[in-house]
């Protein structure tokens, strides 16, 4: 700053008027400065999101365990690994571009693009697994109830009373036993039971808990071992009965919001990489690659915190 003021002073008594000398206040290029400023706003954005997640998560009376909501830690860890790999490849692309190894830089950039797409693909697979279990962030499709109370019981009864379901159930109950798979035979029995329990006049909370367990059992702490048939919703996908996951609605809201915003950032990064691939990646473009890389590392950084918070806590 002093220097630029001094240079203006010098130029004042020159022959051709003042020559304004561009002098950066910070010793870095404008693009990088703007990228860092943008990243600091992004830090605030994700700090607010993660902070509210922490408040909701640790202030909640009950929070579903990862297995209750079909979260798979190995898949989350795999995604972490993929993102770390892509961070390395973008750094290597930058180094190659600085060393004027253009084709190598392009190769690393392509690898980054592919790894980012792989991350998104795995994320999409995880989302579809949630959707197939009826876990959605909001009401019209979301079928999560917080507790096995009368509201839950009446929701299940309402679903079982829908004409389509009555029709399908009639088909199922009249089907000969040898036309069904063994788990369908067992499922048919427990579906009858559920229907009878819901119609009984002296219904109690525990009955409804049993109903909830028949529809979608919550796996215990000892993980995958506890699997008695996977529940009615799994055996008969057309049933789509409401299910009980204590704390599940808030979990779904935070999970889809956090991972969704992160996925949007990944998509933006992929677009930037795709655009960069159109250029010759020599030393002239190193600044561009560096800025895109800074953004990508930040996306990686967010995932480093999201992964344990969402999958392991």
């Amino acid at each position: 700053m002093n220097a630029s003021a001094a240079s203006i002073g010098h130029d004042d008594h020159g022959h051709h008027g003042p020559v304004l000398q561009y002098q950066p206040g910070l010793p870095l290029s404008r693009g990088k400065l703007i990228m860092w400023l943008f990243l600091s706003t992004e830090i605030m954005f994700f700090a607010a999101l993660l902070g509210s997640y922490v408040v909701l998560r640790f202030g909640a009376a009950v929070w579903p365990k990862p297995h209750h909501v079909h979260l798979s830690e190995p898949i989350g860890a795999l995604n972490t690994f993929v993102l770390i790999c892509s961070s390395v490849t973008v750094v290597l692309a930058l180094e190659a571009a600085r060393a004027n190894k253009r084709s190598l830089a392009k190769l690393w950039m392509l690898a980054t693009l592919l790894l980012g797409s792989l991350f998104l693909g795995i994320k999409g697979y995880e989302y579809s697994a949630k959707f197939s279990h009826g876990i959605y962030p909001a009401a019209p499709r979301g079928m999560i109830y917080e507790r096995p109370d009368l509201y839950y019981g009446s929701a299940v009864r309402a679903r079982l009373g829908e004409p389509v379901i009555i029709e399908r159930m009639k088909e199922l109950f009249t089907a000969p036993e040898d036309a069904l798979r063994p788990e369908e035979v067992a499922g048919r029995r427990s579906l009858k039971q559920v229907r009878d329990m819901l119609q009984s006049p002296d219904q109690q909370a525990f009955d409804l808990a049993v109903v909830a367990d028949q529809i979608m059992p919550l796996p215990g702490d000892s993980a995958e071992g506890h699997s008695h048939g996977g529940g009615l919703n799994d055996t008969f996908p057309w049933l789509q009965l409401p299910m009980v996951i204590p704390g599940g609605n808030m979990w779904a809201s935070t999970y889809f919001l956090l991972t969704g915003f992160h996925a949007i950032h990944v998509i933006v990064g992929l677009i930037v990489f795709a655009v960069l691939l159109l250029y010759e990646l020599g030393p002239k473009r190193a600044g561009m690659i560096e800025n895109a890389g800074l953004y990508w590392h930040f996306v990686d950084l967010v995932w480093i915190f999201l992964f344990p918070l969402l999958y392991l806590f």
């Binding site: 009376a61 009950v62 917080e146 507790r147 096995p148 909370a205 525990f206 808990a209 049993v210 909830a212 367990d213 059992p217 919550l218 215990g220 506890h226 009980v244 204590p246 704390g247 599940g248």
Partner: peptide
């Protein structure tokens, strides 16, 4: 949801 609901479900399971 309360902790008791989770217990109820675990008992049912």
């Amino acid at each position: 949801a309360r902790g008791s609901d989770l217990k109820l479900l675990e008992q049912a399971a």
